[in-house]
């Protein structure tokens, strides 16, 4: 049995005037791969943000533990340094900050990753090659003017550079063409192979899961986790969609 890396217990959260997440319990063991599925608007991204510590969302009750520490009240930067990484569904454009300056700064912030500029450049070069990215990206402003696929690659580049213990990938695969999808899949595989980190993959698309061995699947409907099961649950959802869970949730039925 693995150590529990992330433990979300009884979380109720939302924006100031709108409850979004209800009674969320979720445990992810070190090195495990979990999948979170659910219809649009279910609250999947919100859960990712709440785990990351986005102050746009209020946690009204419940706790989040990471590596045995209660991080419910920690700021996002602390959680990041502790080893949580959230890959954005829509990465934010940051004009005025070249990718190079940014990557260097977030890397130097971590004692375990501190390295000379030379080593750093070599490492970034390696990852860029792995992700079929041109080095010229580095002098461009962070995420500004990049295509959707390129932005996701930049997220993967950071994932591989920062080597977190837990990576939450929020629809990293959505809107990608076949080539970009295979590059991103390779990135995720490399993360598993090199860092042995845990994954919480939020997705609609089973393709990205083909090359991953999934430990647990969770289904979210209307802000509640309504079902949890083995990898085979994904095939079930693929074949039958979310209606069964939505019906069960609407009738207030038993939450499996």
């Amino acid at each position: 049995m693995h150590d529990t890396l992330l433990r979300v217990s009884g979380i109720n959260a939302g924006t100031e005037d709108k409850p979004i997440l209800h009674d969320i319990d979720l445990a992810v063991g070190a090195g495990e791969t979990h999948v979170l599925m659910g219809p649009n608007g279910a609250g999947k991204s919100t859960l990712g943000r709440v785990i990351m510590g986005d102050p746009a969302y209020q946690v009204n009750s419940g706790t989040i533990e990471f590596g045995g520490e209660d991080i419910t009240d920690e700021a996002a930067d602390k959680r990041s340094l502790a080893g949580i990484f959230l890959s954005y569904q829509a990465p934010v454009e940051v004009p005025g900050v070249p990718l190079y300056s940014y990557l260097r700064t977030i890397t130097q912030k971590r004692p375990e990753l501190k390295m000379t500029a030379r080593k750093f450049r070599a490492r970034v070069g390696e990852i860029a090659d792995q992700l079929d990215m041109s080095g010229s990206f580095l002098t461009r402003e962070l995420n500004v003017g990049f295509s959707g696929g390129e932005k996701k690659k930049i997220e993967m580049l950071q994932l591989l550079l920062l080597r977190p213990k837990l990576a939450i990938l929020d629809e990293t695969d959505s809107g990608l063409d076949v080539d970009a999808l295979s590059v991103v899949s390779r990135g995720i595989e490399a993360y598993r192979a090199d860092c042995g980190g845990a994954l919480l993959v939020i997705t609609h698309n089973t393709r990205i899961l083909e090359r991953l061995s999934v430990d647990r699947t969770h289904v979210m409907v209307q802000g509640r986790l309504v079902a949890e099961g083995p990898a085979s649950l994904i095939d079930d959802i693929d074949a039958h969609g979310f209606e069964q869970f939505e019906r069960a949730n609407a009738s207030g039925g038993d939450r499996a």
Binding site: M52, D54, P55, D77, S80, V97, T105, I106, R110
Partner: peptide, 22 residues
């Protein structure tokens, strides 16, 4: 933007200084 930078480990001041370093 600040949130994105904080999510990657920077404090507010560090995020602001990043613009200067850039």
């Amino acid at each position: 933007q600040i949130q994105y930078l904080q999510d990657r480990g920077l404090t507010l001041e560090e995020a602001e200084q990043l613009y200067v370093r850039a």
